[in-house]
Amino acid sequence: MEIKVLGPGCAKCKTAYNVVEKVIKENNVNATLVKIDDIMEIMNYNIMSTPAIIIDGEIKIKGRTPSEKEVKELLGL
């Protein structure tokens, strides 16, 4: 599984990344986590509100920080 967290580096984006990272570590999820903070790259994903979370190429969350519970559900835990 490939998880991407997109955001130019505001507080919300950092929180989103940390939440995903925590869930992955705690549950030993076999996934690669990538942080994308370059604005030009973010725009290639056609995203207008950050932070956004993309799992296997599909936009799951955008413009908000998810809760741990929500991330777990998205990862099928």
């Binding site: 580096g9 604005i39 725009m43 056609n46 207008m48 509100s49």
Partner: peptide
């Protein structure tokens, strides 16, 4: 920081 993605979108 969302002003930039919005702008570009």
């Amino acid at each position: 920081c969302s002003s930039v993605p919005l702008f570009i979108g």
